[in-house]
């Protein structure tokens, strides 16, 4: 066994995870290699130091808060709008931002309608006029249509003749 292989296996050696044969070869290498021996000693010390850091004790209200949360878990799942509402209640800044966005969107729609739509209506009127001019009979009597006196006179003549 060389030093590289030895060092890769130090941790498994310390945890007793090496097979019997590899374990024996490992110890034979350690017996003649002071550098790897030092590495093993350092790994042992590292594990001892890590063990000095204990797990924390739960704080006083932890059990109560956990029980409450688990009770919430047992409640039937709510709809997305209710979860959204709860999220907004927890973060009022988000609720404010969402309200500003909605107002902005509504304002944008209103401005678009008031500016763009009149233009569209004008286009539609032109298009209707164009359809009118396509009616050749109308074009033929266009001057007459603009002069109502002549139309009335024609109507009177036709009534007298009848």
């Amino acid at each position: 066994m060389d030093c590289k292989l030895c060092r890769e296996n130090i941790y498994r050696y310390l945890r007793g995870q090496l097979s019997r044969s590899v374990h024996d070869v490992f110890e034979m290498h350690l017996a003649k290699c002071p550098d790897c021996n030092r590495e093993v000693a350092q790994e042992k010390r590292l594990s001892e130091f890590l063990n000095e850091w204990p797990a924390p004790e739960p704080s006083l209200g932890f059990e109560t808060r956990l029980a409450q949360r688990l009770q919430e878990a047992r409640q039937p799942e709510t709809g997305w709008w209710q979860r959204l509402g709860r999220g907004f209640m927890a973060r009022p800044v988000w609720a404010g931002a969402a309200a500003v966005l909605m107002v902005g969107a509504l304002a944008a729609v209103w401005v678009y309608n008031s500016q763009v739509l009149p233009g569209k209506q004008a286009d539609m009127m032109v298009a209707q006029d164009m359809e009118l001019f396509q009616d050749m009979e109308v074009i033929e009597y266009l001057d007459l249509l603009e002069n109502w006196d002549e139309i009335n006179a024609l109507e009177n003549d036709s009534e007298e003749q009848s």
């Binding site: 850091w53 797990a55 924390p56 739960p58 704080s59 932890f62 808060r65 956990l66 949360r69 688990l70 919430e72 878990a73 047992r74």
Partner: peptide, 30 residues
């Protein structure tokens, strides 16, 4: 619960956050 709290505490190194994570973990587990 103690194992979860210990893992979360050592990872986050903050007792309050670790307790929040523990509660949330069991909530999600359910």
């Amino acid at each position: 619960k103690r194992r979860v709290l210990a893992v979360a505490y050592r990872f986050l190194q903050n007792q309050q956050e670790a307790e929040d994570v523990t509660q949330e973990a069991f909530f999600r587990m359910f």
